[in-house]
Computed example of a mutant assay.
Amino acid sequence: MSGKTTSARPTPRLYLATPVVTDPAPLAASLPALLAGADVAAVLVRLTESDPRSMITIVKALAPAIQSTGAALLIDGHPDIVARAGADGAHLTGIAALEDALPSLKPDRIAGSGGLSTRHDSMRAGELGADYVLFGERDAQGRRPSPDAVNERLAWWAELFEPPCVGYAVSLKEATDFVAAGADFVLVDDLVWSDARGPAAALGEIATAIRNVHAAAPVDAAGQS
């Protein structure tokens, strides 16, 4: 990996994670309009553990609704079914999972990396060829770093490394703070799906807030906001 270039920073984009999908039909029906209303770069599909054929069937049912909008479809884990399901890549949790998945995903598909609890793990993921690194997600016990710790990790990564960094946000404030810290993407899930106004209103609000924070960010002499 090399240091960041000095070109102006693009507006950060959204990365939407689905609830765990058992019946894809309702989600497939609602996703096109939802994704059309905000700048969503990718959708992370979460699957119930099942046999490969059943999981592939679910992903194939969702793929047109996601990919037709220009968003990438990533599967949470299960790199072995990515190609057969027509997905664009997988999100892997932990360095071991990333290492195991890279031969089946590269060079044609996306390999994202999360579960990176230390700076060393983050740098290792980048060295291995992760297409992005995710900071701030919950661990297996439901715990996650403090927002300040996530901000610090995003700022450190954004300043020094080339692969994009993603901040996992559980509130609108976190989403905007992570953008200000340097996140290239903001991952959202329950923040959207649990909003009483509906997911479209929630996603639109987050997208607008991200654009506003990015537009207000100062640009240094090198052109990096």
Rank of each mutant, 00 (worst) to 15 (best):
L62P: 07
L62W: 05
Q67R: 15
Q67P: 07
S68V: 02
T69R: 13
G70S: 10
L73F: 04
I75Q: 09
I75N: 10
H78G: 04
H78D: 12
P79K: 04
D80F: 00
D80Q: 13
D80R: 05
I81A: 11
V82H: 10
A85V: 07
G86V: 09
G86R: 10
A87C: 11
A87Y: 08
D88W: 00
G89F: 03
G89Y: 02
A90W: 02
H91K: 07
H91C: 06
T93C: 07
T93M: 08
T93G: 09
A96Q: 14
L98F: 06
L98W: 07
E99W: 00
E99T: 12
A101C: 08
A101N: 09
A101K: 08
L102F: 07
P103M: 14
L105M: 08
L105C: 06
P107F: 09
D108F: 11
I110T: 10
L116G: 02
L116I: 01
S117T: 12
S117D: 14
R119E: 13
H120L: 11
H120G: 11
H120N: 10
S122R: 15
R124V: 10
R124A: 12
A125P: 03
A125Q: 02
A125L: 04
E127R: 11
A130Q: 03
D131H: 10
Y132F: 15
V133G: 02
V133F: 01
L134V: 13
E137C: 02
R138D: 10
D139L: 02
Q141N: 12
Q141C: 00
R143M: 07
R144G: 12
P145N: 05
D148Y: 02
D148L: 10
